[in-house]
Amino acid sequence: MISRGIQNIKVNGTFYPTSFILVGIPGLEGAYNWVGAVVCSCYVLALLGNMMLLTVISASSGLQKPMFIFLSILASNDALLSTSIAPQMLSVFWFQKRHISFESCLLQMFFLHSFTSLESGLLLGMSFDRYIAICKPLRYGSIMTNTIIIKLVILLLLRAVTLFSPCIILIQRFPAFRTNIVPHSYCEHMAIVKLAAADIRINSALGLAVAFAVLGVDLLFILVSYCAIFHAVFSLSSKDARLKTFNTCIPHMCVFLSFHGLAFFTFLSHRYGGKRIPPYVHIILADTYLLVPPMLNPIIYGVKTKLIREQVWKALHKCQSPHVK
């Protein structure tokens, strides 16, 4: 049984919980072993896929190009994003270790939202890379340089820290919390904010504004990029060239539409879903948008890329050749 008492610590005349208790997925307690198995599978596949992608790209001189640099940064971010939540979720589902300290909870919240913001920004950068490659191929080398990519990544990191730090600071300023029972499987921003014994309208509005400033703006520019790409594709005279471009772009579109779509559903349902959306549906989808893209990205962006496939086959052949007599 989960204790419902709040452990408090007095700081500057106010009381805070020393820890939170993560419930997991309310309503699915009897299936936690199976849920944990799914989470573990997603986590292991995400780590293996992204580590493979990083290894292949770093080991091949032929893959030191802007698109593959974006892919390597995305793979690193996906591995970190999965690691920021999956171990904690497994401790809840498999080992019933549900306590997480107040500071660790805020740290997890900051990192997972920062990695999510960086993920969205990298998807935008990759769509811009494809736009330049397809629509302005003669200027590609002068526009997409390593310096530009480094500056973009630094800017995305600064954006994440600048926008999400106030959310963390405002949570620390709550005078008290009504309970330390978190009906979620990780420390999600609004799941913690709703526990406060205070007016949460500023926190809710700020969280929503940050979500739209990051995911909304990124999604808008991604869609503009792909609209320009498809406009250029339709003007191609070669049917084979059109099919090749569509074959490349459609999986990428599925990735960012699913990622951004589930992200917006999570943010909005926390605020306006009320009792119309069962808690387990909301939490499963929230877990999905953080666990599944890091698992699928190496497949969609890596395996479907011809140059990466060739390098993977070469690496496998080298591993097998010493045993061949």
Rank of each mutant, 00 (worst) to 15 (best):
T18A: 02
G49H: 03
G302E: 06
M67K: 10
H317L: 12
M67D: 08
S114M: 12
G30Y: 06
P294C: 07
G36M: 09
S101R: 04
L296K: 05
N203P: 01
F212G: 00
T305L: 03
S225C: 15
N8P: 03
H189K: 00
I149Q: 14
H189M: 04
C319W: 14
G5T: 11
L156D: 04
F128C: 07
L152H: 09
A315S: 14
A191Q: 00
Y140C: 02
H260Q: 01
N12I: 00
L106H: 12
V23I: 09
I148T: 10
V210L: 04
I132P: 02
K65D: 00
T248M: 11
G273E: 09
V56Q: 06
I277T: 12
T288M: 15
S120E: 11
M109Y: 03
V92P: 07
A46N: 04
P183T: 04
L223D: 07
L220T: 13
S76V: 15
I192S: 03
V23N: 08
L81N: 08
A198P: 02
W313S: 12
G125D: 02
C167K: 04
S204N: 11
I300L: 15
T179C: 03
K244N: 13
S58L: 09
K275M: 13
H189N: 11
M1P: 11
L112Y: 10
N203E: 10
G36F: 07
R4W: 05
S114I: 07
C254Y: 06
M1T: 07
C227G: 11
E103K: 13
A86P: 09
N146T: 14
A197M: 01
Y16I: 08
L195C: 03
P17A: 01
V224N: 01
N203A: 09
Q320H: 11
V217D: 00
S84K: 06
Q88L: 14
F212M: 08
T147L: 14
C40K: 08
E29F: 05
I181N: 02
G5W: 01
T248P: 00
L163K: 07
R159L: 15
L307C: 05
C105T: 09
H282E: 14
L243W: 10
S258D: 02
G5Y: 02
N33H: 12
I299T: 05
L206H: 10
I229W: 01
T162W: 11
L81F: 13
F267Q: 08
T145Y: 06
A176F: 00
Y131Q: 06
L152W: 14
G274V: 05
E119W: 12
L81Q: 12
L22N: 01
I73K: 03
